[in-house]
């Protein structure tokens, strides 16, 4: 008993303090693929049912709605092109770093971590599709997380609500920069070390700030639910609700962002 207990403790220590066990873990987690596939069957079946067992009338109505949406979006895109060009010109004038278009790849959720405290999901894109470690993952509403482990045709995503995750953000309204941390709850994030004098109020929208170079600039991360300043505390406690539908989204987007010009800009500043 003592021996086994000690071995377990040593393993825990090795796992949390070093990276030595990483290859073995990665290999064994791939062995979990069949389990994920099997347990996701009901969800996939119901999705298939939703897609295939609908009346003609419903389909026509949906088609109509999608057409309307498409034409609205197209009209907005027309303006977008002009605004993008103008933005690029202005940025050139300012000698600022150039942001290129982000390319995206659609991925599908194929598994959820069985441990309620670790917010990790499996998606069906891997190194074969060009995904890479650290790649940002979005859903249609906002930032979801980043890829932390990668295999040939699947990868593991650490969600922004995991208690070990933090993402640099800024307030859309006034550009205040801060860091949003996960709390281990799918519907809550927290801002740490926010000074009481900083201008953040409930309802503020937080977007990724692009600092740290991991996440691209400007994707919505969350919305401030409440701020509270309790006596005796040096910092405000700010509760944030993630914008992305972290618990429910099954179709995700992988972002291929081009931030290569960023370093060039830094060099100019340095020289």
């Amino acid at each position: 008993m003592l021996l086994l207990g000690l071995t377990a403790l040593i393993l825990i220590g090795l796992d949390t303090c070093t990276e030595w066990l990483e290859p073995a873990k990665s290999r064994f987690e791939q062995a979990a693929r069949p389990f994920h596939w099997l347990t996701n069957l009901p969800a996939r079946l119901s999705e298939w049912g939703d897609e295939n067992v609908v009346s003609r009338k419903e389909l026509e109505a949906e088609n109509e709605q999608l057409r309307t949406e498409l034409s609205i979006h197209k009209a907005q895109m027309l303006r977008m092109a002009e605004i993008t060009a103008e933005n690029a010109r202005l940025r050139n004038l300012l000698n600022a770093t150039e942001l290129l278009d982000d390319k995206v790849l659609v991925a599908e959720l194929i598994g959820v971590s069985p441990d309620p405290l670790s917010h990790r999901i499996l998606i069906n894109r891997g190194s074969r599709d060009g995904a890479y470690i650290g790649q940002p993952v979005l859903d249609d509403r906002g930032l979801m997380g980043q890829i932390v482990r990668i295999w040939k045709d699947s990868s593991q995503v650490l969600l922004i609500t995991d208690s070990s995750h933090a993402v640099p953000v800024q307030v859309l309204r006034n550009g205040v920069r801060t860091v949003a941390e996960g709390t281990g709850d799918y519907r809550r994030m927290a801002l740490r070390y926010v000074s009481p004098t900083i201008d953040i109020v409930a309802g503020d929208v937080l977007v990724s700030s692009g600092l740290g170079g991991r996440f691209p600039v400007g994707y919505p991360v969350g919305k401030v639910l409440s701020t509270e300043q309790s006596a005796g505390q040096a910092y405000m406690s700010v509760v944030v609700e993630p914008t992305a539908n972290i618990e429910r989204s099954r179709h995700l987007l992988l972002v291929f962002s081009n931030v290569e010009d960023l370093s060039a800009g830094e060099d100019e500043d340095g020289g």
């Binding site: 008993m1 086994l4 207990g5 071995t7 377990a8 403790l9 040593i10 393993l11 825990i12 090795l14 796992d15 949390t16 066990l21 073995a24 873990k25 064994f28 987690e29 062995a31 979990a32 389990f35 971590s113 069985p114 441990d115 670790s118 990790r120 593991q156």
Partner: peptide, 29 residues
């Protein structure tokens, strides 16, 4: 015996990708 419990826990940790040894320890206790 305890060894069996420990191995089950370790396999669980490996497959679920949790902290290695966590469930092995809990089960062997």
């Amino acid at each position: 015996g305890i060894g069996f419990a420990w191995c089950c826990g370790l396999v669980f940790d490996l497959i679920t990708g949790g902290i290695l040894g966590q469930h092995a320890l809990a089960l062997s206790v």
